[in-house]
Nucleic acid binder design. Structure first.
Lengths: 227, 227
DNA sequence: TATGTAATGTACCATTAGGTTAATTATCTC
DNA sequence: GAGATAATTAACCTAATGGTACATTACATA
């Protein structure tokens, strides 16, 4: 099996190959994403990344300069792809509660599906965001996420459904926190407290709980009388 | 300055030194915690850890076998220390709301203060919890955390303050998620959406918000009519 | 079709870093 | 206090790994 594949690969390469820089770079970035997401920056091995590609290590250095350059490009691509994916979601602002639930469900599932992205973000946080590139550019990429929440919240306030005085940043933060943590800390949380929350039904309930939590917070004034 | 210190160190060592295995191990573990928390498992350098200690690289291998053995011990110690620190908090169960707020404030601040712990947990999640050791032991260490929440919740339900039907696991999960995320994702979240949430006042408000969120969820039945 | 340039393959290098060997010093026990 | 054992030092080894030199092949263009 393996030998066949390599034989084919060899043949393909020997028989007239075409130059295709973009495809080669894409190919490298994909392999690198897997590797970095799995092992972190220091843990990733350039040689292994090269093995996963259809090209050679030399090409990695040719296109990306060095390991860090490659990593930076992977981060950027991942964030861009993710935010782009989120834009696909369409929401009906005339029903703010429903819209918010839909946004949360979407975020919850999206994060679950894209654990590579989550892992890269974790890794980048461990590096204290040193590879995020130009901060303004990074902020621009991410701005739509807050915008989204702001729209829903404003609509809800105007319709008299949501209470006033809350900030979209905080709401987005809450949603992010729980949807992110659900994926990022599954290993340690599961080991510490059991896997009930991470079974299929557990996850459905959890998503529901996140929705309920955020919505209830939006609907009811908090009680600060200490009882 | 530096030369003086090294001179002193040298002298100390040359002049009759005492054996003190426990202290040496503690000393190594502390240095290793810093290094692992800062650079991750693969990024950490045994040589640098050794440099930070008052002893030598050989001692690390003598006491911990290899890099992974050292890392395991660091993880275990960190978790144990953390949970132990949490036990110090005393709560008045006759006032469930107040008790819960106090627990959340404590967790929030505790996580902020112990970012080394947070970072190690992140790192361990990237490794998918491979180094947590015996799962049962790990679960035992962590059990008190849920227990705590369960006590408060039960008291609140019995007093007719909290609504019925919620699970302590989920409540603990919510609190953990937000308090953890606040520290773990500060770098990327701040870069993406600004640092307002992470200024001193931003943090105070955020903590308040977490409390309000969880409490409101405990006090009010969620509204699932989609509007 | 000649030529300069971009893209690719192969073999190699230098250094880093995890781990070890073997000798030295303290400590314990009988 | 003698011999055995535990703790410590310093120098060393080797595989892995990030990175490079150089030759070669495709391609655009004039």
């Amino acid at each position: 099996m393996l030998c066949c594949m390599t034989e084919n690969k060899e043949k393909k390469k020997r028989q007239g190959w075409k130059q295709n820089p973009e495809a080669v770079q894409e190919n490298i970035l994909e392999a690198a994403l897997e590797e970095f997401a799995e092992r972190g920056f220091a843990g990733a091995r350039i040689n292994l990344i090269a093995d996963k590609t259809d090209t050679s290590k030399r090409m990695i250095y040719y296109y990306f300069g060095d390991k860090e350059g490659l990593y930076r490009r992977v981060i950027e691509k991942t964030y861009t792809d993710t935010r782009q994916g989120e834009l696909a979601l369409e929401l009906d602002l005339s029903k703010p509660q429903e819209a918010l639930r839909k946004l949360i469900t979407f975020t919850f599932n999206h994060h679950r599906k894209h654990s590579d992205f989550i892992r890269l973000v974790m890794i980048e946080n461990i590096h204290q965001g040193r590879h995020l590139g130009e901060k303004q550019h990074f902020a621009d990429i991410n701005a739509p996420a807050i915008q989204r929440v702001k729209e829903i919240y404003s609509a809800g306030v105007e319709q008299g459904v949501f209470r006033r005085g809350l900030s979209a940043e905080q709401l987005h933060w809450q949603i992010s926190a729980m949807c992110f943590f659900n994926v990022s800390n599954q290993a340690t949380f599961g080991a510490a407290f059991g896997d009930q929350l991470f079974t299929p039904t557990g996850q459905k309930e959890l998503c529901q709980t996140i929705e309920d939590t955020v919505l209830t917070f939006l609907l009811h004034e908090p009680d600060r009388l200490l009882k």
